[in-house]
Nucleic acid binder design. Structure first.
Lengths: 300, 300
DNA sequence: CATCGCGTTCGGTGCTGCCGAACAGGGATG
DNA sequence: CATCCCTGTTCGGCAGCACCGAACGCGATG
């Protein structure tokens, strides 16, 4: 699917309509369990930003925003103005259409530097991309989900639009499976129960037991494969990286067209990705993955 | 200086102290002229995000945030929670320290795609970086200010930390001067009056007349030079790019160490940057810059 | 001309954002 | 061991301000 961020709407702003929760009075305003004591207008503002982000590149009008957000135009205008003043949004000159602003770029750039890994990994990814001639990416592990934070296109490779900063589906990506393979069976089952194994293509693994078997294969191979499981014709290969505390910190993966990749190169690719991932782990101060076999320390 | 975004605090949240404007009752809440009818809590939230962005890479504690923001801890907690739920912030596991979250990366990535230019220019920058062996960047023009939105490091070049998405000072950067050179004298004077010509190094141009003379040189050369005017030992060279409406849309520039660059290469560099900028203009549907001499159409 | 949609402004209501006080846990200090 | 300070957290309660709806001016479209 398209945007895949935690859904703020459900957490805070229960009703998109103007009916505003006639029950709870001044109560904690929404109680889905996670988010209590939050600020409604800020949650709305963030949702507004997400809407603009998911919208077309040429922007959305104020009325569009009001409709999507489920608030009156005046309220939406106030929010949009505030966000524009902060630089998060930007209104094009002719016929005010809102797009994301430059502050978003600034924040994104800084965020990549602040996150556990950052530009440190860039040279390694560049090297990997040149070696494999594929698009190479680095993901961090965000509560079990892989989130790509860095991408280096391979030389002459087709340019996939692979958005950064989004949670990917764990069961249908090489990075995700590389991460899952370090977890216990119970943890994997919990993740699956939480998200469901959504079908993406005809190759997607959609039942837990098959997934667990596949993860066993990942552990013995030392790398995870996504063989057209997320998108038709796309092949990925990934390995996990570990932080100083020994816990899984993320994954490195390469992406390419299935047809361009002869089967005999897979093992060689696996070694290359593995090498890059180990170097990233080293930067993090974590121990490199054992050569093969069990990876996680808590498989007990 | 460090962070350089529009200051929301002055616009909306007048008093950082808890004294909260006992005058105006339900009045528009602050009226410095620019920002009327804005949402206070959202403005605060955005300021909070900026504070985190400007903070150290290992994050800030809640109390830090409360102090910087000038609000009570409980209020700050509510804001931080809301932002965290939206993915904009992220709290590290041991001893809650806030850093920017993955949503910031996502938004930044999308923003670069949404802005007038985007990944379209990346290949050109890559080519330019390889050809010149310098770090090449693309800036858009944000109300006269250059804002870099894309950066490609040259092969083996020292890695400058050149933040993206920030407004740079127009008078002390090659991109800025390339843009200023397309404006009328009056416009340039207005910009200078608005921002002041802040000294950055001993080479910085700090009076308007010298700047105007320098811009005349830019026009006759066809490219702008920043010769250690922004940072000691750093040399930049930039040229403007134009949109479909003929107005200046931004600039392309290359950055390197002054000592690495023999004087005789400057002209050759200028041509290379010029070529890249023209290609970007072409993508935008704008006419390429005339070979030399007058550049702007409105020098009348 | 009439109609629809856009963005914008302005009052008024009452929800909700905000604060301060109080509580619990941890480290460092004596 | 007891004390101190600082952390993050919860909870009441007041009133500030976020929210909505109605109204206005505009341009494009029928």
């Amino acid at each position: 699917m398209g945007g895949w961020v935690r859904d703020v709407s459900a957490a805070v702003d229960g009703a998109p309509m103007s009916t505003q929760q006639p029950d709870g009075g001044a109560a904690p305003a929404g109680d889905d369990g996670t988010g209590r004591y939050t600020v409604r207008s800020v949650a709305r503002a963030m949702r507004l930003v997400q809407i603009v982000a998911d919208g077309p590149a040429n922007g959305l009008t104020l009325s569009d925003l009001a409709r999507s957000l489920g608030t009156s135009k005046s309220t939406t205008l106030a929010l949009a103005r505030t966000l524009t003043a902060a630089g998060m949004l930007r209104d094009a000159k002719p016929g005010p259409r809102y797009t994301l602003g430059t502050a978003a770029i600034r924040l994104g750039d800084i965020a990549r530097g602040q996150l556990p890994l950052g530009d440190l990994s860039r040279p390694l990814l560049t090297e990997l991309a040149e070696e494999t001639k594929m698009t190479s990416r680095l993901a961090i592990c965000d509560e079990g989900f892989p989130v790509f934070i860095e991408r280096v296109d391979g030389p002459g490779s087709v340019r996939f639009h692979t958005p950064l900063g989004q949670r990917e589906m764990p069961h249908a990506s090489a990075a995700g499976k590389a991460i899952l393979a370090t977890m216990t069976e119970q943890q994997v089952r919990d993740m699956c129960a939480q998200t469901g194994l959504r079908r993406r293509t005809s190759h997607t693994i959609t039942d837990v037991d098959s997934l667990l078997a596949n993860l066993e294969l990942v552990r013995s191979n030392g790398f995870a494969i996504d063989d057209e499981e997320d998108a038709e014709g796309i092949f990925c290969l990934g390995t996990a990286i570990f932080g100083h505390d020994g816990a899984v910190a993320g994954a490195v993966s390469v992406t390419g067209i299935k047809g361009d990749l002869p089967a005999w190169r897979v093992n060689e690719l696996g070694q290359a990705v593995r090498r890059a991932a180990d170097q990233v782990s080293e930067i993090l101060g974590g121990q490199r993955q054992k050569d093969t076999g069990r990876t996680g320390s808590e498989t007990a």
